[in-house]
Computed example of a mutant assay.
Amino acid sequence: MKFENVLEEKNDGILTITINRPSKLNALNKQTIEELHQAFTDAELDDEVKVIILTGSGEKAFVAGADISEFANFSTEEGKELAARGQEKLFDLVANFPKPVIAAVNGFALGGGLELAMAAHFRIASETAKMGLPEVSLGVIPGYGGTQRLPQLVGKGRAMEMIMTAGMIDSSQALQYNLVNHVTTPEELLEFTENIARRILKNSLVAISAAIKAVNANYEDGVNGFDREIEEFGNSFGTADFKEGTSAFLSKRKADFPGK
Rank of each mutant, 00 (worst) to 15 (best):
M168E: 13
G222F: 05
Q87P: 00
E77F: 10
Y144C: 00
G65I: 08
K50C: 03
A72F: 07
P100V: 04
L110M: 14
S23P: 01
K99T: 03
D67Y: 10
N29P: 02
L189D: 07
T128F: 00
V101L: 09
L25P: 00
E187L: 06
I200A: 04
P100W: 13
A61V: 06
N218A: 11
L90E: 07
L133M: 14
V223R: 06
T185D: 06
E77P: 01
L54E: 14
G107L: 06
R85A: 08
A117K: 02
R253P: 05
F40S: 04
A217G: 11
G238L: 13
A72E: 14
S137D: 04
A83C: 08
D221W: 10
L25V: 01
D47G: 09
K80V: 14
I212A: 12
K89R: 10
N235I: 06
D92W: 07
N216R: 12
V136N: 12
G56A: 09
K213P: 00
V154W: 03
G79E: 10
D92F: 02
S69M: 10
E9V: 01
Q31Y: 02
K130L: 12
G234V: 04
F237M: 10
N96D: 09
D67H: 04
L190C: 10
L114Y: 09
D170S: 04
T16V: 12
T184C: 13
I53S: 07
A248K: 06
P142T: 00
K156V: 15
G155F: 11
I33H: 03
